[in-house]
Amino acid sequence: MQVTVIDYKAGNLTSVLKTLRHLGAETVVTDGDLSLVESAERIVLPGVGHFAATERLDATGLTGAIRAAIARGVPFLGICVGMQWLYAGSTEAPEQAGLGHFPESCARFAESSEKVPHVGWNSLEVRSGSQLLEGVEAGEFVYFTHSYKGPVTNDTAAVTHYIEPFAAAVERGNVMGAQFHPEKSGETGLKILRNFLAWQAKGATC
């Protein structure tokens, strides 16, 4: 099992790579070699930090290559900012477009007495039918660290509550995203990454 991990210079890839390898995946990293996306069996787009960093995906041609891979049915997982990029954009960098796979936009948590960023372990309300979150029980905890979030829609795979309900995970067919960090979420996170590595189109057989 090979996983192509996209490096767009938005933070540290070490944790994601070591966790995927721990689960038996072979990893290749690309920061612009489109052939590694064109031949990808699975794609992971990690990301911490600022939404503006996704500009590099456009500049290197990775955006187009990823769009084509998704259209071919390659399983895709975006993590944190990598999930937010699946939407049309984010108020964090309004001039920078996201992939637009999901038509909504990400926004900062509303002003409240609670702290932003949302840092720490919070629980998931998993919606039925999610392949990414299969076997994750209601109330299992995962680790978050973010200030922006996606809205709850029909594509939301899990909801988490902090200040307001938001999309902790998103999923439509082969395109999946986690606002939390599965690579830092203990056994629950490992289960979710295993699900991603085992993901097959519904109805497909080996």
Binding site: K9, A10, G11, N12, V48, G49, H50, P117, V119, T145, H146
Partner: peptide, 9 residues
């Protein structure tokens, strides 16, 4: 450090 690795780091 934050510029390269994010404030959360």
């Amino acid at each position: 450090i934050g510029a390269s690795f994010g404030a959360q780091a």
